[in-house]
């Protein structure tokens, strides 16, 4: 038997009895980061492959949303800070050891880039559009000429952004459930998948929806594979990792994870997309919507579960 009790009473708000440092803001921020990474990645990729006219929603329209999404994400991050007036301190140093730091910098670079990238498509989407001031028009022409460079930077930065959303958590070895290198690729793939789903929801072009749906099928496949690996890795590891896995295998997160994330967020959309591919009539909006919800719930659960998994006092609860 082993029993640990804090007898002096420790009830530090947000820490005891279970850590609750991060509420809804961080999962929302991570979800949006992944979604934006996905949209920008596909936009840049299809542009570089010369598919701009074939898949206009992917390349031109969808990116218009990314600056708005990013602003919401950054605002959520800002809401999470408890010493808000000092937030500018984030941008007085770069600390490579701290994912929070290089993530904040990546966002700072990708935000204006997403604005510029969207702006270069404005005139093509809205033929009547005119940037009022001639210098803006000239800037637009200049950036349009450098679209290739922009696209390559976007591919690079969106992968970093997508990975970062997972690495932010996996870098914390104090929380056994987060402390797995699978979270980086898992969140990246899930982010790309939510990006593809958002494009499917927006596109009115059948061929475009189909290609996105095909891409999504493989992404979901990889995600399922990564999730199985995540648990295999935990179960083959040390005690605290086994206990972290048990949170999902009989523990408090079992029902919500396997129902909402695994079944409704991955398996059902996968089957729906496969059936549609085979010619069955399934409105594409259904799997796309499920993928988005599944991605959001995944982040909520992972952020929450990580905070309940710990090294010390684990016999206490």
């Amino acid at each position: 038997m082993k029993e640990i009790e804090i007898t002096s009473g420790r009830m530090n708000p947000g820490i005891d009895p279970v850590l609750h440092a991060w509420g809804w803001e961080i999962p929302v921020y991570l979800f949006i980061g992944g979604l934006v990474a996905g949209i920008l990645f596909f936009s840049a990729l299809f542009f570089l492959r010369g598919k701009t006219e074939q898949y206009p929603t992917t390349v031109k329209r969808a990116p218009l949303l990314t600056p708005i999404f990013l602003a919401i994400g950054l605002f959520a991050l800002f809401l999470d800070l408890t010493h808000k007036l000092y937030f500018w301190r984030l941008y007085t140093t770069i600390r490579l050891e701290s994912p929070m730091s290089w993530g904040a910098w990546t966002l700072l670079i990708i935000f204006p880039l997403s604005v510029i990238w969207s702006a270069t498509w404005f005139k093509e989407i809205f033929p009547e559009w005119n940037w009022k001031w001639s210098f803006l028009n000239r800037l637009d022409d200049w950036f349009t000429a450098y679209r290739k460079v922009l696209a390559w930077s976007l591919i690079f930065l969106s992968i970093i952004l997508g990975m970062y959303t997972g690495i932010l958590l996996s870098a914390f070895n104090a929380r056994p459930f987060w402390n797995t290198s699978i979270l980086g690729p898992l969140f990246l793939v899930s982010g790309l998948s939510t990006g593809a789903a958002a494009i499917m929801l927006m596109s009115k072009n059948k061929a475009e929806r189909q290609i996105m749906s095909k891409i999504d099928i493989s992404l979901i496949g990889i995600e399922i594979f990564l999730i199985i690996h995540l648990f295999m890795g935990f179960l083959a590891s040390i005690e605290v990792h086994v206990q972290a896995a048990e949170l999902f295998l009989g523990g408090p997160y079992t029902a919500v994870f396997w129902t909402f994330v695994f079944t409704l967020g991955l398996v059902v959309p996968l089957i729906a997309e496969l059936l549609e591919w085979r010619g069955y009539h399934i409105p594409v909006k259904v799997p796309a919507f499920l993928v988005l919800i599944g991605g959001l719930v995944l982040r909520f659960i992972v952020v929450d579960a990580g905070q309940t998994s710990r090294w010390l006092y684990k016999f206490m609860q």
Binding site: R89, A174, L312
Partner: peptide, 23 residues
């Protein structure tokens, strides 16, 4: 210099930190 991001709180295996009411 602290912005209250709480990264340090989640990274401490001993749960030794907390957010002061002043932020």
């Amino acid at each position: 210099e602290c912005i209250g991001c709480k990264a340090c709180i989640t990274s401490c295996p001993y749960d030794a930190r907390f957010v002061h009411p002043e932020g």
